[in-house]
Simulated scan of single mutants.
Amino acid sequence: MKQVLIIEAQIKKYRLPFYQQLLEALRNVDIELRVGYSNPPPAEASKQDTCDLPRDYGMKVPGYWLLRQKLLLQPLFRAAMNADLVVIDQGNRFLLNHFLLPLSRTGLKRVAFWGLGENCQEGQVRLSEWYRCKTLNWVSWWFAYTKGTARYLEANGVPGSKIAPVDNAVDTSEIREHVRRISAEDRAALRRGLDIASSAPVGIFCGMLDKVKSVPFLIESVKIIRARIPDFHLIVVGGGPEESPVRSSVEGIPWIHLVGPRFGKEKSELVAISDAFLMPGRVGLVILDAFAGGLPLLSTRLKIHGPEMEYLEEEINGLMSAPDIPAF
């Protein structure tokens, strides 16, 4: 039986349904799936959004973070050499990639990239960025996050014949179903639990409390909204390295509800009592949570957005403003 090995730094909870479905799909064509991963580093663990995979296909190994968590060493070389195809994250931080990519380029190993293509993050290192671009075409195949990613890859020398746009997403059926089942009475009760009037407009933020999410920007923005709409409330869902300063900044503000990480039914309930998703910072897969809950996404025009921002159609399912507080 042929074997596919996918390597990740850690497993996000939202990926679990995907891997369960992929496992069954590959079994149906006599292909074995293995997924190598490690525990998250402390900063990631604080978000409380990771999980373990079942042992029948999950391969949890120690992860050794080096150079202040800029490089990750995972002892998966033997597993990679035994697999017929290895699917790796495009990030330079994976040390194993730098052994596998030369093998792929010389035809000694079948390796595929799974990623967003263009690096839109701030603080890029010139040598690292040069190497990332240089190795774009060293793999046998590309699973491109979106059609925009595929266009970027082709523009940078990767043949379209070995690119598969996958429209990166998560299974949002659970959110849709939970939201659909919540009655008007239950929504009113959920609002009462947060001391929110049934008619009050509510914005919701869902994501990691991290610098790239611009939560302080959001807090200052909603203060302006509150001055114009006196019964407005904001619900902040998530955890992360910026949780402590964010909590301090909203202390004594009863209409800003910092509820911590929520998942599944609990997150769906909060989405159901909200009117709009407010995400002024970097937007990624959370855009799908907004749309699954029937909410528009309000964001700002930034270069650091994930490719999933392609799913936003202005004035149809969301709006974007200039990246300044009064405009937002």
Rank of each mutant, 00 (worst) to 15 (best):
G123L: 07
T50V: 07
M320Y: 11
T146D: 10
P280Q: 07
V202I: 14
D289P: 00
L95R: 02
E220W: 03
K60G: 05
R176C: 13
N317T: 01
R191D: 06
T300P: 13
G252C: 04
K162L: 00
F94K: 02
R68W: 08
S38H: 03
F99L: 11
T146H: 09
I182L: 10
D56G: 07
Y311F: 11
F143R: 08
R262Y: 02
F143E: 03
G306R: 04
Y64S: 07
S214C: 13
Y64E: 09
V222Y: 06
K213N: 01
I224R: 15
I273T: 06
Y19A: 06
P42S: 09
L53V: 10
R34D: 04
L258R: 01
M59S: 06
S248K: 15
Q48T: 09
H178L: 07
R78E: 14
I229C: 15
V286D: 04
N39Q: 12
N168I: 01
V139S: 09
F232C: 08
C133E: 15
F205K: 01
S214E: 13
L67T: 10
P296Y: 07
F77R: 01
L285K: 09
L53G: 03
Y57Q: 02
P75N: 02
S198N: 15
P254M: 03
V4E: 09
Y131C: 05
G123F: 04
M1G: 11
Y57K: 06
V259Y: 01
Q21Y: 08
P326C: 10
S299N: 02
E220M: 05
H178Q: 10
K109W: 10
A322P: 01
L23T: 10
R151P: 00
T135H: 02
R110T: 14
K134F: 15
P75L: 04
H305C: 03
Q21W: 07
K12S: 11
G193S: 11
A197R: 11
F99A: 12
A169W: 07
I287A: 03
T149L: 04
K213Q: 08
V236Y: 08
M1V: 03
E243A: 14
E314A: 11
L302D: 02
L194C: 01
C51S: 13
V87W: 00
V61M: 08
